[in-house]
Structure formats: structure tokens, C-alpha cells
């Protein structure tokens, strides 16, 4: 009875979480293999700035324009990473760090000056299962469908990009741009659930574990989906049972995968 009550209460959070867990599992292994697993982390810090900017103009924005606004601002700021890298001849991880800290710094200034050091900011930072509503679920579902379509069409090129810089006659740039766009979209829909600080965990733990123990790439994808869903489920159960914050519970559970890898290595 109690479980049914919680399921009803967190229905949209769980559904959005399932969509988010599956969609990130389909892209995360590529991200890890491209040695770019900190990219979602950078995106989420940039996203915090976008969220705080949105909060400034929220009264003037219709609800349906919030998502496009977040996407546009985040993509523009993410583009600056590549602009900076190209213009100043910096490594991409250097320009990523610069943009991340600038965004975070600016976000904190805005939060300070607009008195948003409150529950809203905490929700942005750590996420909240309770605040996920039907609109968020629909956005997550849309991102999952887009992920499935792009995965079907571009998975071989995303995989190629993990170890080839150039292939004669094959356009890798377009598929890679779509890949990074997808990661941005996934980060945006995951923030409400997991928070800015921990959303990128869904891109790392499961896929790294799956890649480590799989004998083929296809198996790694299936395992990555399974591990992400398992984390979501146990994170949910732990957070209810022990009254933990959901995002923290998920990440602690994911930590068990890495512990498992240690035991596997020893045995």
C-alpha cells in the first residue's frame, strides 16, 4: 500500500528517470571511449548559468519556451568551448575548464545578486524527484526517442570517432556534432532529477563498468542500459527507505559497480 502511494507520488519522476537512464546509457559508452566523459559535467555547469538566467526572465517566458531557451543558451555557451579552443589554440579540455568555471562563477554572481540562494538553487544543484512533473517526463521521453533515432543511424560513426580521426569519404563531423547536441539535451532533461552536480554520473559509472566487463561493444550497450536502470531503481528505493536525497543515493549505489570491478580484478 505504502509502495503504491510512493509510486503514485513519484510517478513522473520514475518515468522521466527511466527515459533518462536509457537514453544516457546509449550515448555514454561512446563518450567514455572518446575520453570525453567530463563533457556532460561541463555542460551541466554551463546549464546552471542558463537556468539562473531563465529564472531572471521566467515571468516573461511561456512555459513551452523554457526548454528551447535552456537549449539555445547552453548550446551557445558550449560552442564557445570550441571557439576558444580554435581561436586561442588551446586543448579542448583546457577551454572546457575555462568555460565551466566562468559559467559557474557568473551563475553564482547572479544567484547572489537575485537572492536565489534558496530551495530553488538547491534543487538545481542536487535535483529533486518530487519536482519532476508531466512536462519533464514528456521532455525526457522526447529526448529518448531522439536518442534512439540518432543511435540507430549514427552508432557506427560514433564508434569510429572513438579511435579514428578521419575516414576517407565518411563525414564524421556532422555525426559528432549531433552526438554532442544529444549529450546536451540529455543533460538538460536530467538536471531536474539528478541536479547539476550529479547528473553526469549517469554518463560514467554504468558505461565504464559495462565497457570493462563486456566482450563486445553490443554487450556493453545492453549492460550500460541495465546498470543505469538498476541504479535508478535502487537509488529510488534507498532514497525512500532511508530518506536520502535521490541523486546521492543513486551515485552511492553506482559506486558499488566500481567496487565490484575491484573484486572482479582480484578474483
Amino acid at each position: 500500500m505504502e509502495l503504491l502511494f510512493y509510486l503514485e507520488l513519484f510517478k513522473w519522476g520514475l518515468l522521466a528517470g527511466i527515459c533518462f537512464a536509457i537514453s544516457t546509457a546509449l550515448t555514454a559508452p561512446f563518450l567514455v571511449l572518446q575520453r570525453n566523459s567530463l563533457f556532460p559535467h561541463a555542460i551541466t555547469h554551463i546549464l546552471l548559468l542558463s537556468l539562473l538566467l531563465l529564472s531572471l526572465f521566467k515571468d516573461f517566458f511561456p512555459v513551452f519556451l523554457e526548454f528551447p531557451f535552456l537549449l539555445t543558451v547552453t548550446l551557445f555557451l558550449s560552442y564557445l568551448i570550441y571557439f576558444l579552443a580554435r581561436t586561442l589554440h588551446l586543448f579542448e579540455d583546457t577551454s572546457t575548464s575555462i568555460l565551466t568555471y566562468l559559467s559557474l562563477g557568473l551563475a553564482l554572481l547572479i544567484a547572489g545578486k537575485t537572492s536565489q540562494f534558496d530551495v530553488t538553487l538547491l534543487n538545481y544543484l542536487f535535483g529533486s524527484f518530487l519536482t519532476v512533473d508531466k512536462k519533464d517526463y514528456i521532455e525526457s521521453f522526447f529526448v529518448l526517442i531522439l536518442t534512439l533515432i540518432l543511435f540507430y543511424h549514427f552508432k557506427d560513426l560514433w564508434l569510429a570517432k572513438c579511435f579514428e580521426e578521419e575516414i576517407p569519404g565518411i563525414e564524421l563531423k556532422k555525426s559528432q556534432a549531433l552526438f554532442l547536441l544529444l549529450i546536451t539535451l540529455q543533460s538538460i532533461v536530467g538536471v531536474k532529477l539528478m541536479g547539476v552536480l550529479l547528473v553526469s554520473s549517469f554518463f560514467v559509472f554504468s558505461s565504464a563498468t559495462a565497457l570493462k566487463i563486456s566482450s563486445s561493444f553490443a554487450q556493453a550497450i545492453y549492460l550500460s542500459v541495465f546498470f543505469n536502470l538498476l541504479s535508478l531503481l535502487f537509488g529510488f528505493i534507498l532514497s525512500i527507505h532511508f530518506d536520502f536525497p535521490f541523486s546521492g543515493a543513486v551515485v552511492i549505489f553506482m559506486g558499488l559497480y566500481i567496487l565490484g570491478l575491484f573484486f572482479l580484478k582480484r578474483s
Binding site: E165, S215, F217
Partner: peptide, 27 residues
């Protein structure tokens, strides 16, 4: 368009290969 008619091995092939890469030689 017939790029399959050209075989290419780049300089320092495999330099980007990640230790986690689960691809078999056959694949």
C-alpha cells in the same frame, strides 16, 4: 564516391584506442 576502392592506413594508427575498447578483431 567510390571510397571503398581506397584502403587507407593513417599515421600512428590506433593512437586513440582506449584501453576500455571492447571491439574484437573480427568486429
Amino acid at each position: 564516391r567510390d571510397w571503398h576502392l581506397i584502403g587507407y592506413v593513417p599515421q600512428r594508427a590506433g593512437k586513440n584506442l582506449n584501453q576500455l575498447f571492447p571491439l574484437t578483431l573480427k568486429e
